[in-house]
Write a protein that binds this DNA or RNA. Structure first.
Length: 216
DNA sequence: ACCCAGGGTCATA
DNA sequence: TATGACCATGGG
């Protein structure tokens, strides 16, 4: 009854949607690629682009760096923004190689790793945190558009607040740990996708009982 | 025909 | 620091 709100919302989502087992990728590198390709883009489109890379045997840093950009862009076409994403994907691969690969990266402290990621062109706070949480299993809470919409509607946050402020708010309002943050963000996206969407009301939503909007 | 999607950069004030 | 333009495909 007095359980913190961020936790009780988690419980509701977890009960209703079940375990998510994110991120949908077969390797840490594939996960990072997906994080860049899914920027402001529907996941179904990202899957096609990743399939294209796989079919072309290019789902690895070296092949991507050795590919000319027009050809890479063509493979990325279904994910949208393909010229921009071709550039961003190469920047990611260049970083990955320059940093010495996965084994080296895994040894870095979370702070340093985050700063390093943010310095890569095309990686902003959300993409960096996706990568930290799902590829490196670090305890950072990812804030995305669904999170802003849902939790402001629930009356728990200010949707317009800066990214870092919201991240701090979630991380302070939950028991720490990558395990929980991982599952929570996945649940938020899953819930947002097939229920809330951009609807202004959510009376038939599982969160209705906890939603400030429907009580105002 | 319209809106939106698991954002980020860059130029401008 | 805070807006706005821009990137582009595919599904509802």
């Amino acid at each position: 009854m007095s359980k913190p709100l961020f936790e009780s919302v988690y419980d509701t989502l977890r009960t209703h949607h079940g375990r998510q087992r994110w991120w949908p990728a077969e390797s840490a590198f594939e996960m990072m690629v997906g994080a860049v390709l899914t920027q402001n883009t529907a996941w179904t489109n990202v899957e096609r682009a990743i399939d294209n890379l796989e079919q072309a045997a290019m789902l690895a840093p070296r092949p991507i760096l050795n590919c000319d950009r027009p050809r890479l862009a063509e493979l990325l076409r279904p994910s949208g923004y393909f010229n921009v994403k071709a550039r961003r994907l190469r920047a990611l691969c260049q970083w990955y190689v320059d940093e010495g690969g996965m084994e080296c990266l895994k040894r870095r402290q979370t702070r340093a790793l985050r700063e390093s990621l943010l310095a890569v062109n095309g990686i902003g706070p959300e993409t960096a945190d996706d990568i930290l949480l799902y590829a490196f299993k670090r305890p950072v809470f990812v804030i995305d558009a669904y999170t802003r919409r849902m939790f402001s509607r629930l009356g728990l946050i200010d949707a317009e607040a800066p990214y870092e402020e919201l991240r701090a708010q979630f991380e302070a309002g939950l028991p720490p740990g990558a395990r929980l943050f991982n599952e929570y963000h996945a649940l938020i996206v899953t819930h947002g996708k097939h229920i809330c969407q951009a609807r202004p009301k959510c009376g038939d939503c599982v969160l209705a009982a906890q939603c400030a909007y429907v009580h105002s």
